[in-house]
Design a protein around this nucleic acid. Structure first.
Lengths: 350, 350
DNA sequence: GCTGCTAACTAAATCGTTAAAGCTAACCAC
DNA sequence: GTGGTTAGCTTTAACGATTTAGTTAGCAGC
């Protein structure tokens, strides 16, 4: 005995003695048939447990699925918990939702060959912060299907981004207004090989423009040089993942340095790094900002709804997502968009 | 001139002089054809820019899409930023990813008629915390398609959940070990009608079991009664959305009460509420825990990676997600699963 | 009563795959 | 030399809808 086959348009048509085209119209173009018949069809559909045209068949026939795929740089497991990626998704979902589209989550980490076949179901792609070895950068996946990039710029596609160098210069310059003796940097995605800790001469840095944080580094260095520091004066630490768990040990290493080696200014590449540093510093009895000044990057909510408030650069990630979504839906022209950033002066570097 | 039609299996077959079945086999069952021919096919595919079988057609033919839909109670825009929903998604994504499936995000708020048609593309559904008026509770959408529920129990479907009443009893009892003079409750989803503020006699509470927080209330009350309080002794506030922005004004209202009315113990239904309360209390110069004791619920990372650490009940939401995902993929038997909760004694109610 | 028009339907082709069944030649065993 | 396998293809029929191009009946206008 076979499983209870799904009811289809055809079943409904046979049952009612009308053509399948009419059933289809009953669901898609009410004006193409008499109200009375439509009533009858909808009633019978409910009775037979028919839930409307099957999405698989419909998308094959029409060529469109009303699904937009979002390709995230890291694993989904991680990305979903990242506050910036969350805000982005929030903005994207808001627009897609309002226009009857849904959102498919993909990870861009894997190589082309491993991209789930289900990717080709999407009507369009929004890709976030992919880095060179990734499949999408080679423009391999989309192939004449619409793609909007966020925070990176694959050739030939529109992108939504901020001006990273000036933004990081802005906050570093602000932080350095108050003289620092031992400034230091804590960042993500700076090294070619994985590195969770101090960056030494042995490590090779990524080429400029290959990651957002890498391009922000230039802004930090520009501000430092204006204050008479050379790049090598400010030690750098790299962190592999923007989570409390992975940040903590590296930051402990920094904060547990002897008093005369411990940085008195920590320029962090993300708010989450800065917030973790803040917590750990407080636990060690360091006074903020007297003993340690801290800056973040992103302007996430958690950094502002706490005391002390984080000094940081705000970028509107929700809006980034909205804009990308509008572009992919064709509601806005697909042209690269640069969003502004603003300095938030909090309590960690007043 | 028509758009440059997508290359298909058929084009490839014609070009190479073989049947479409063989091309299909080259991609899906390498053992069904000679390695030499397979090489030739794959080479030609690359040359013509053919990216493998189209997901729309394949899913129609096979009946499976390798897509699992996650239905979230609230709007996606909000859910994605909720730390508990994020952890859940994280766990789900981890398992789906490992088994070549992808994740479609749906909101369960809307009525059946507004469910995106794309829903029927999914092979299965994981639904989270839906409440009665929602479409899914009436089991309207899935209709003999697999569904696993998280944190609610639709008849006939397996569910992954915790025991809410004992969990909330546990933390309330712990918090009340130290005598409180004016305990109060701050919760989500307690009232039938929207209410952002103090719950008075005018409001009608949701029926028990209609929301998680509502069933936790019983545990709180049990603990309070053990200490000689009647339910009406402990004032309640309701908050419409678990975000800093929406929580803040309600909590300010509470914290700004005159000293002799302000609660000295705040039992919060979520960590995010408790954390917002904590921040606002600190800003007002209240000493924690001397002037105000606080408890949360969930055990999210943000509550522990900060000082003072939040006293709360931990539930493993990531694991909840993993289990639900394994069930929906058939990797684990689909039987309702109860997960344990643990008391985390932090600094806000030591 | 004829023409023309519209409303309300139907027939049939198509979307790009996969899967079951069938075919053919080559090889092996006895 | 016959019968049985098997490897390696091909043929053909779905999968469940949408859409284009009809067909038919009814009615208005003159």
């Amino acid at each position: 005995m076979s499983p209870p086959r799904r009811t289809t348009l055809k079943d409904l048509a046979r049952e009612l003695g009308v053509s399948t085209a009419t059933i289809s119209n009953a669901f898609n173009r009410p004006d193409q048939l008499s109200p009375a018949l439509r009533e009858r069809i909808l009633g019978e559909a409910k009775r037979l447990g028919y839930r409307g045209p099957d999405a698989k068949a419909r998308s094959l026939r029409t060529g469109r699925s009303r699904i937009i795929a979002v390709v995230l740089a890291e694993s989904l497991t991680y990305s979903i918990n990242d506050p910036v990626a969350s805000e982005l998704l929030s903005g994207i979902a808001e627009v897609l939702d309002a226009h009857g589209h849904t959102l498919l989550l993909l990870s861009g980490r894997q190589h082309v060959s491993q991209v789930p076949g289900s990717a080709s179901i999407a009507d369009g792609f929004i890709a976030y912060g992919l880095m060179p070895p990734s499949l999408m950068v080679s423009a391999d996946l989309p192939a004449q299907r619409p793609l909007v990039a966020i925070d990176f710029s694959p050739a030939g596609y529109p992108t939504v981004h901020i001006d990273n160098e000036p933004a990081s210069y802005m906050i570093a310059r602000y932080a350095l207004r108050t003289p620092a003796r031992r400034p230091a940097l804590v960042s993500l995605r700076l090294t070619a090989e994985p590195c969770n800790g101090r960056i030494t001469e042995e490590h090779t840095l990524l080429p400029p423009e290959s990651s957002i944080t890498r391009s922000r580094l230039a802004g930090f260095h520009r501000a430092l040089e204006e204050r008479g520091f050379t790049p090598s004066d400010a030690p750098m630490w790299n962190i592999e993942e923007n989570t409390f768990e992975v940040c903590a040990p590296v930051l402990e290493e920094i904060l547990d340095l002897p008093d005369d080696e411990r940085p008195d200014l920590l320029l962090c590449m993300s708010d989450r790094i800065a917030l973790t540093a803040l917590t750990l510093a407080e636990q060690r009895g360091l006074r903020i900002p007297e003993d340690l000044r801290l800056t973040g990057f992103d302007g996430i909510a958690e950094g502002q709804y706490r005391a002390p408030r984080l000094t940081t650069v705000r970028q509107d990630s929700v809006e980034k997502g909205r804009i990308a979504a509008r572009m992919i839906l064709g509601l806005a022209p697909s042209e690269s968009t640069l969003l502004p950033t603003t300095l938030i002066v909090g309590d960690t570097a007043p």
